[in-house]
Design a protein around this nucleic acid. Structure first.
Lengths: 225, 225
DNA sequence: ATTTTAACCTAACAAATGTTTGTTTAAGGC
DNA sequence: GCCTTAAACAAACATTTGTTAGGTTAAAAT
């Protein structure tokens, strides 16, 4: 009984990220040449996509494989375990969001610490809300089991948030002790924003502007020009 | 026949919430009379405990059963499914945190909307940080699968947060449009606080005080007395 | 043409999962 | 004493899980 090809996954039931890349576009060397490790990127994209929507525990290797256009077992050619996949997503996420924030800060007026903070917060929000799934996973997905992995992921995130610690400490505040609270207030509200953010509402830059303005008020003291 | 008692879980391997209630205290009617539905409460406590630490997806019915002092199958006498357990934890959590906030607001000066907001935020933080596991689950655990359940859980939380909408709208603001941003800023930062909160640091009331003060500044306009 | 190798598939494994079914225990009412 | 019933157990169930082992394909190197 049974045994008649019960499982036939073939390709994902719902192509999530972009499972249609190997069509008939054989112009030169893209679809017909999986020689480069561009498939690993697809796998990572699929993992980030699923981890963001369902969380780590609720995501199966078959989910990821389906989205990446391969079977679950094939994933182990690119990553040695599910944990390794999560770690890779986190690392890439931190890389992206940190790069975005650094670039935004570099664009700001070096003599205006409030603007620097606002630009950084806007980039943080942009990465989190409109940017891909990677940043979201970094912020939200911290599995409780496997404490070693958890420690490593927290270390990655703390290293990133260090930037905001410096940005806030550079503010001209009446009470320097407020720096820590301002950072916790802004970063916490930002990291929570995905629960209420709507693409048709305020943009990340606008949100950052509102948040910074609310706590700025007249707290600045120097900066006369 | 047989009866070698292969599996003998008896009581949890690590008594998590408080698995030591049926000792030898048979004073009148507690340990010897499981007639009341006091076991259901233990099950709910265990579920809240696990859901908070591991999240919904990573928690197994055997985990909960172990903590509650029974086998996984026995849980189905009290709750008809794992989803039902999560829903019950959410309902109880909303009941508790809403009750705490309402009580705190009732204690505040009715003519001082800033104090009312601060007290409410303090109670919210207290429930979230020092209060049991229920409130934490309400805030953090929203499983993505089973959209019906998710919708119901979000409805529960939104109903609760409605209180803050009213509290913020009662503030004497220079720009009324800021009410929404203030609510998102404060509530977001509060809901994120469990990632950095340490019991030996600032108390929930102190945290609420700092947060409210940071955005208050001189935004108030009425309230001369 | 042959070999190599990156990339993937097929097929299974053992363990864990949520849940169900039938049975047992013990307390309380009659 | 018997009967009812709340509460739990014991044992399985059908899937699903992460992971592995060996086979297959096609492009690249020799």
């Amino acid at each position: 009984m049974d045994g008649q090809a019960a499982t036939k996954p073939e390709n994902g039931t719902d192509s999530a990220p972009d499972a249609g890349a190997n069509k008939s576009a054989e112009n030169s060397a893209e679809a017909v040449r999986p020689r480069g490790n561009n498939r690993r990127e697809r796998v990572l994209d699929a993992a980030a996509y699923r981890f963001r929507r369902q969380g780590y525990a609720a995501t199966t290797m078959r989910d990821i494989g389906g989205d990446a256009g391969m079977l679950a077992g094939s994933l182990y050619y690119h990553f040695k375990s599910k944990n390794a996949l999560l770690l890779a997503v986190h690392e890439e996420g931190v890389r992206r969001i940190a790069g975005a924030v650094d670039a935004a800060v570099a664009d700001a007026d070096p003599s205006d610490p409030w603007q620097r903070l606002e630009y950084a917060l806007a980039a943080h929000l942009q990465s989190l809300l409109d940017g891909g799934d990677y940043a979201q996973v970094v912020i939200r997905d911290l599995p409780a089991d496997e404490p070693e992995l958890r420690t490593e992921l927290i270390r990655l995130r703390d290293e990133y948030e260090q930037r905001f610690r410096h940005l806030v400490e550079a503010l001209p505040l009446a009470n320097e002790k407020d720096a820590g609270w301002i950072r916790l207030l802004l970063l916490g509200a930002a990291n929570w924003s995905n629960t209420w953010y709507r693409p048709d509402g305020a943009t990340p830059a606008e949100i950052a502007g509102h948040f910074v303005r609310l706590i700025r008020n007249d707290k600045s003291m120097g900066i006369t020009t």
